[in-house]
């Protein structure tokens, strides 16, 4: 790894006072008596004049434009219900698909137990969610397997500008879709899938310390016996 000593990011706990000089309270924080405190377990980051707490745990809370991987759990004549591993069930309206679904014909296109990749179109204040799989790159997934990780770890799995997923794909050659809701779909040859799944687990178990990309690169280079071509990028410049 590079020369600088690893700096264990400090973990903040709900109720911790944050150093918010001149900053506004961002996500994962709250304002009390003019001071900013952490509301969740996580690490502190600054962004555009806000101080945020990046969560280290917690369930997936849907946000508009998130790409998600969901499971069909129920259906009605003009919609399906999708489990997106979140406190809120997500309906998928028949109109939000690439197909011309006639009323009552929903079962012909998606059954209970099917897996889809799609996006969250909207979330209202009552946390009611609308999904869509209409765009070309979305739809039903077949084959492969689903892995579940903590949604808090998804940004680390993707990496800055996608460099972590690129690194994994470069070596393992797996097809991989990462849902913001912590669901990952992968498919490929047995060895590639084995290594990709292993790396995904390491990322899921990882703490806030920097250097994760280096560790993953080291593992993959050892596993495949060659160096990476995906460029090295420091991942500890204030963001995961």
């Amino acid at each position: 790894m590079d020369g600088s000593a690893p700096d264990r990011r400090e973990v903040v706990i709900p109720g911790d006072l944050l150093n918010g000089h001149g900053l506004k309270p961002g996500s994962g924080t709250f304002n009390e008596g003019g001071r900013i405190y952490a509301a969740r377990i996580g690490t502190v980051a600054e962004r555009d004049g806000f101080v945020d707490v990046i969560p280290l745990s917690g369930r997936y809370i849907p946000r508009s434009r998130d790409v998600i991987i969901g499971k069909i759990t129920d259906l009605g004549p003009s919609h399906w219900l999708v489990d997106i591993n979140s406190p809120y069930p997500a309906p998928l309206n028949a109109k939000e698909t690439p197909w011309m679904v006639e009323f009552g014909d929903t079962d012909r296109y998606l059954h209970v137990g099917d897996v889809v990749i799609g996006e969250i179109v909207s979330v209202d204040e009552a946390m009611r969610v609308q999904l869509s799989i209409a765009d070309r790159q979305f739809g039903r997934l077949t084959g492969g397997q689903i892995l579940d990780i903590s949604p808090a770890k998804v940004p680390r799995l993707i990496g800055r500008n996608g460099n972590m997923v690129a690194l994994i794909r470069e070596f393992t050659n797996v097809r991989m879709f990462v849902g913001q809701n912590g669901r990952i779909w992968i498919d490929g040859d047995a060895e590639g899938v084995y290594h990709a799944a292993h790396v995904i687990k390491v990322i899921d178990d990882s703490g806030p310390a920097p250097g994760l990309t280096d560790q993953v690169r080291a593992y993959l280079e050892a596993a495949y016996g060659r160096r990476a071509t995906t460029p090295a990028e420091r991942d500890d410049d204030g963001r995961h």
Binding site: R65, D66, V67, I117, E119, R136, Q137, F138, V154, P155, R156, I158, G159, R160, N161, G162, V165, N173, R175, F177, V178, Q180, D187, G188, D189, A190, E191, G192, Y194, H195, H198, Y219, A222, A223, R239, H240
Partner: peptide, 24 residues
């Protein structure tokens, strides 16, 4: 990493368009 178990298979065809990854 463990020793290779399965013989290397031919990698599958390159996938179609992947959905855009959302940057953190």
């Amino acid at each position: 990493p463990p020793p290779q178990e399965a013989p290397r298979e031919t990698p599958p065809d390159m996938p179609e368009d992947l959905p855009p990854e959302v940057d953190d």
